[in-house]
């Protein structure tokens, strides 16, 4: 069989719903796409821990502090699980971190924004993690089985993140006018990034990650599912979504909304978001500050061997 024939046979198996394991043969393009896709996901989990990290010391109660800390630990744990997959696909961890801190690889748009209040913490945990669970739920059926399995575990843990975030928001909405305003302002800050979260409405036939079965649902479908799941829940508690065009079009059976500026999304994920530089330099600093730990562990082994 020639290489091309092998690739065709592989594509056919994927279309039939077969799954690929790390030790199976796979086309170079599939491997490269998996690395890029999963690496961005892993980077997002790692970078996603930073905005919330700022609020550990400012959490309003001990319970909230414990919960926020646990959530952050989960996110770093998710990064660990996903980086293992990328390493197994052939990219070493040192290279992954080097690319990340030097801006050669990406992380999700929502982690390029600063946080201003405790309201942001609630909205992030409820609605940003909620958006992530919609895409991660679909990824459970990825053609790459180790990724699908990891998604099942991650989604299970995310259930706590969502509930914890929703609880923060609901508590504030039962509180004073000032607390309600805090949530409303946070929602207004996050709505645009949330509408961009699932990416531009790329036609499914042009989306290579869909073709290879790495993803299983087109971007726009994910966004529609997101709106169907959350719009009512948001409005029910007295929050106003800052998009006058947002409505469910029952004739078309879909949500219509103000089209996000996709060039802006591109600029943000390529490192030009309001907090991109700061987050990356903080990550770079952590990497430098912990270098001695890695040296100690590896050096000690080198001597013992």
């Amino acid at each position: 069989m020639t290489y091309e024939e092998r690739v065709e046979a592989f594509k056919k198996r994927i279309k039939e719903g077969h799954k690929v394991e790390a030790t199976d043969w796979m086309p170079d393009e599939y491997r490269a796409r998996l690395i890029k896709f999963i690496e961005m996901h892993a980077n997002s989990e790692l970078m996603g821990a930073l905005p919330e990290r700022d609020w550990i010391l400012r959490a309003p109660s001990l319970h909230r502090k414990l919960a926020v800390t646990a959530k952050i630990q989960d996110e770093v744990g998710h990064a660990q699980l996903l980086y293992r997959l990328v390493e197994d696909l052939g990219k070493p961890r040192e290279k992954i971190f080097d690319d990340l801190v030097n801006g050669r690889t990406k992380f999700h748009n929502v982690f390029h924004y600063p946080t201003y209040s405790w309201g942001d913490v609630g909205i992030i945990a409820w609605l940003v993690d909620g958006a992530a669970v919609i895409s991660q739920g679909a990824l459970q059926r990825s053609s790459y089985a180790p990724y699908g399995r990891t998604m099942r575990r991650i989604c299970w843990e995310e259930a706590f993140h969502l509930k914890h975030g929703e609880d923060i928001v609901l508590t504030a909405m039962m509180g004073t006018e000032k607390q309600k305003r805090l949530m409303q302002e946070a929602l207004e800050r996050w709505w645009e990034p949330l509408m961009m979260f699932h990416g531009p409405p790329t036609p499914p036939e042009k989306d290579k990650d869909l073709e290879w079965g790495i993803k299983t649902k087109p971007n726009e479908q994910l966004r529609q599912e997101y709106l169907s799941t959350y719009v009512r829940k948001i409005q029910e508690i007295g929050l106003k979504i800052p998009d006058p065009k947002l409505k469910y079009d029952s004739d078309k059976g879909r949500w219509t909304y103000t089209e996000p500026d996709w060039d802006k999304l591109y600029a943000i994920v390529t490192g030009n978001g309001p907090a991109s530089k700061e987050r990356l330099s903080f990550r770079r600093l952590s990497l430098e500050e912990t270098a001695w730990v890695r040296r100690a562990i590896l050096g000690e082994r080198a001597q013992a061997a």
Partner: peptide, 24 residues
């Protein structure tokens, strides 16, 4: 089978595995 960890030795491998696969 739930996944894997990378570690320099047994002791650290089991600490990492506990932290990653049994936080709850």
């Amino acid at each position: 089978h739930v996944g894997s960890v990378v570690a320099p030795d047994r002791e650290r491998a089991l600490e990492y595995a506990r932290d990653i696969y049994s936080r709850r």
